[in-house]
């Protein structure tokens, strides 16, 4: 890396350059950075400005004010909804990390020869359509859906009393989100277990540790970064989730993300409040990302 980085080597015979198209740093970075500045940073700045009423698309007087922020921080409705989203995301993330750990452990440490094929089998559903996997659950969970009609058909339940809490409930949101993210969560845990040096376990065993002790004292601590990464990979995107709740959540599965969408929607739009909610969510996610940066950073991309 050092040689190329040292810039142009001293050229004994200067060659005429026909084309000024060279891969200099500004030429390489100009376009990507400009794109993200214009279509990523500026839009967020506009939302932030909107939340302070520094900027508005409504005609009429406006100017810097903290009113919308004040109202937000003193409203029980929005904050309660935020906590509901936090709790739901935390629960889903925790449950699927607990489920995914044994899966990753099996793949990484059981010595199975087909571990990459099995890993692909596990992850493949994650790489297919998100919306269609939600759709599948809508078909399965409805009052006239697969589960209920199967129960009627087999006589396990009377058609007059379907399991009505299956769809359009908080349970449905959690089930579907868990279903969607489970394969993905196994991946970082698998990677951390895979890189575990088995000789450490052999050493523990030679020194008289039982498998459980070796797991508790060696494997688990060493795989913890993968577990934290897995947890955050689910928690962060589900915190602002609105698609799944709007499809299977009903009224009781209505989350913070849905509230933001509705504030920008066609009913009673309130873009200023919506901007406050959005910036607040972004702030929370940004803080989480910074605090846990060392678990989230894909090492290969950032290492110099």
């Amino acid at each position: 890396m050092t040689l190329v980085d040292a810039g142009s080597p001293p050229e004994l015979v200067p060659r005429p350059r026909r084309l000024r198209l060279d891969l200099t740093t500004p030429a390489l970075l100009g376009l990507p950075l400009a794109w993200l500045a214009v279509f990523f940073l500026v839009p967020i700045a506009i939302v932030a400005a909107y939340s302070f009423d520094v900027y508005s698309l409504n005609s009429g007087p406006h100017g810097f004010t903290l009113t919308a922020w004040h109202d937000f921080l003193h409203s029980s409705v929005y904050l309660k909804l935020f906590w509901k989203s936090v709790k739901l995301s935390l629960t889903v993330s925790a449950i699927i990390v607990l489920l995914a750990y044994p899966l990753a452990y099996y793949l990484a440490l059981s010595g199975t020869k087909r571990k990459y094929i099995l890993l692909l089998l596990l992850i493949a559903p994650f790489l297919t359509s998100y919306l269609l996997r939600v759709l599948a659950w809508k078909v399965i969970l409805g009052n006239q859906g697969a589960v209920n009609t199967f129960l009627f058909w087999t006589g396990l339940r009377s058609p007059d009393h379907p399991l009505s809490q299956l769809l359009y409930s908080r349970f449905a949101v959690m089930l579907v989100l868990g279903y969607i993210w489970l394969p993905f969560v196994a991946l970082p845990i698998f990677v951390s277990l895979e890189s575990l040096d088995r000789r450490l376990l052999e050493a523990a065993s030679d020194l008289g540790a039982s498998r459980l002790q070796a797991f508790r004292r060696v494997t688990l601590p060493l795989s913890l970064p993968g577990v934290v990464a897995a947890f955050l990979f689910v928690f962060i995107p589900t915190l602002g989730e609105f698609v799944t709740p709007s499809l299977v959540g009903g009224a009781s599965g209505y989350l913070y993300g849905n509230q933001i969408v509705d504030l920008f929607g066609t009913g009673f739009p309130d873009w200023e409040t919506g901007s406050v909610l959005a910036i607040f969510l972004l702030g929370v996610v940004a803080i989480l990302t910074v605090v846990f940066a060392r678990f989230l950073q894909p090492a290969e991309v950032t290492v110099d």
Binding site: F40, I44, G240, F264, V301
Partner: peptide, 24 residues
């Protein structure tokens, strides 16, 4: 900082990015 910026769309909630683009 550059790589952090380039990777940051990974963690932005899509609902926030969506309304940001809408406002832009």
């Amino acid at each position: 900082a550059v790589s952090a910026l380039l990777l940051s769309p990974l963690v932005i909630p899509y609902v926030v990015f969506g309304i940001s683009l809408l406002l832009l």
